[in-house]
C-alpha cells in the first residue's frame, strides 16, 4: 500500500491515524486519541512506541486498550510495536478532544465540564450539567459514582431520562 517511503513525521502522523481506530472498550464511540490518553508516538524504521497514560489508576480497560493498540499496529504492518505507560502529568478530562466531547454527547453521555481546574471541580458546586438527550439544564445528580470509574449518574428533570456524566477530573 505504501508506495513511497515516508519521512519520520509522516510516519508518525500515520500512526496517529491508526490509533484513531482503537476505541475505548467501555465507550466505543471514543478513540484513544479522542480520550487524550495517547501522550507520545515515537517511531524509527524498525519500531513503534506509543506512550499512554491511565485515566484512573484502577481503570480495568487499560490492559485491554494496550492489547488493542498492539493488535491494531501489528495489523497495519508496523514491526515491533511497543506500548509504555506514563503517569505524569496525570490525565485530565481537559485532554478530551473537541470531537470526542461531541461523540460523547451523541452517545448519550454528558461530557465533562471544560477548563475547570480540577480542584474546583472536586470541591465546589459545579455548573448545571446539560442533559445529553433534551439539552435541558434542569438536571440533578443521582450518584457521584457510575457504571465505570470515569462516570457519575445524573437524571434529567424535564425528559426524565437518567444519563451518565463523564466526571471532570
Amino acid at each position: 500500500m505504501v508506495a513511497l517511503p515516508l519521512n519520520a513525521s509522516e510516519r508518525e502522523a500515520e500512526i496517529w491515524r491508526v490509533l484513531e481506530q482503537v476505541k475505548d472498550p467501555e465507550i466505543p464511540v471514543l478513540s484513544v486519541v479522542d480520550l487524550g490518553i495517547v501522550r507520545e508516538v515515537k517511531c524509527s524504521d524498525d519500531s513503534v512506541e506509543v506512550a499512554i497514560t491511565p485515566t484512573y489508576s484502577g481503570c480495568p480497560a487499560m490492559n485491554m486498550i494496550e492489547t488493542n493498540i498492539l493488535d491494531m499496529l501489528k495489523s497495519a504492518d508496523y514491526p515491533n510495536p511497543k506500548v509504555t505507560t506514563v503517569l505524569s502529568p496525570a490525565w485530565t478530562t481537559d485532554w478530551l478532544s473537541e470531537s470526542g466531547r461531541e461523540k460523547l454527547r451523541s452517545f448519550g453521555i454528558a461530557p465533562p465540564e471544560k477548563g475547570v481546574p480540577s480542584k474546583r471541580a472536586l470541591f465546589a458546586d459545579t455548573a448545571p450539567i446539560q442533559c445529553p438527550h433534551c439539552e435541558s439544564l434542569r438536571t440533578e445528580r443521582v450518584s457521584e459514582f457510575g457504571s465505570t470509574a470515569c462516570k457519575a449518574l445524573h437524571r434529567c428533570m424535564d425528559c426524565r431520562e437518567p444519563f451518565d456524566y463523564f466526571k471532570c477530573i
Binding site: 491511565p54 484512573y56 489508576s57 503517569l87 505524569s88 502529568p89 496525570a90 490525565w91 480540577s118 480542584k119 472536586l122 470541591f123 457521584e144 466526571k167 477530573i169
Partner: peptide, 12 residues
C-alpha cells in the same frame, strides 16, 4: 507522579 494520579481520585 503516582501521588498526582491518586490525589484526584482521593479528593473525590
Amino acid at each position: 507522579s503516582i501521588a498526582a494520579k491518586a490525589l484526584k481520585e482521593t479528593s473525590y
